[in-house]
Structures are given as C-alpha cells and as structure tokens.
Simulated assay, not measured.
Amino acid sequence: MTTKQVDTVIVTGCTTSGCVRATTIDAFSYGFKTIVPEECVGDQAKESHDANLFDVNARYADVLPKVRVVEYLGSLKTSPITT
C-alpha cells in the first residue's frame, strides 16, 4: 500500500488464537510492520491467548502495551491521503 503511504498495520480483535493471529500473519506476509496492542486482543482461554501472543511476538509482530501504541500514533505527522 505504498501508494496510500501505509506501512504499518495495528491489529485488534476478539480471538487471539484465530482472527487476530491470522490477520497478523497476513499483514506480516504482505510486508507491513505489524503491531498488536496487548490489551486490545483477547481469547476465551487465558492459556491460548498467552501462547498465541508469545508466538506472534516472536515471529510476526511487535506485541506492545496499548499506551505505547497510542503514544506512537500521537507522534505521527498527519497528512491527507488522496486517491
């Protein structure tokens, strides 16, 4: 998405072991820097959630505290995106 000046995907969602993991892997596979705010994802089982966050962080994305992601977004210069 370089034509739209997009280089980063921030993934949030309800099922860390399913949709969140799959979206993270897809974003990584397409070459995007991928960030998962730790407090913005969840799963039915804590064990599954923790194991998938550990693996995603080790292989595909930066799992970061939500506050750091918000600080990062606040530091970006905004410019209009035109199509």
Rank of each mutant, 00 (worst) to 15 (best):
L76H: 11
E71S: 12
T82N: 11
N57R: 02
C14S: 14
T2L: 03
I25A: 06
C14Y: 13
P37E: 00
K77Y: 09
V20D: 01
F54L: 04
N52Q: 08
T3L: 04
V69L: 02
I81G: 03
T12D: 02
V69W: 07
R21F: 12
Y60C: 00
N52K: 02
H49V: 04
S29M: 02
T2K: 00
G42Q: 05
V69R: 00
K33L: 12
D55H: 08
E47I: 15
V9T: 04
R59M: 05
P65F: 05
K33V: 12
V36Y: 05
K77A: 06
N52F: 15
G18M: 02
Y72L: 13
F54G: 04
V6W: 13
V56T: 05
K77D: 11
D43G: 09
M1G: 08
T78I: 14
T78W: 14
T16F: 05
E38K: 04
M1P: 07
P37H: 04
P80T: 14
V63D: 00
V11D: 02
T3R: 01
E38L: 06
L53T: 04
T82H: 07
T3I: 06
R68H: 10
G31Y: 13
V70I: 15
S48Y: 14
F28N: 14
D62Y: 09
T82S: 04
T82M: 03
D62P: 05
F28R: 01
V20Q: 00
S29A: 12
A58N: 07
L76E: 12
P80F: 12
F28G: 02
P80I: 14
C14D: 09
T82Y: 10
P80W: 14
T8I: 05
R59E: 10
A51R: 11
T82A: 06
E47N: 07
A22M: 08
D43S: 07
Y72V: 03
A51M: 13
K4R: 09
V6C: 13
P80N: 06
L64E: 10
V11K: 00
F28T: 10
K46R: 13
D26M: 01
G13R: 02
L73S: 02
F28M: 11
S79G: 01
K4Y: 15
V36A: 01
V56I: 15
P80G: 02
T16R: 01
A27V: 06
E47M: 09
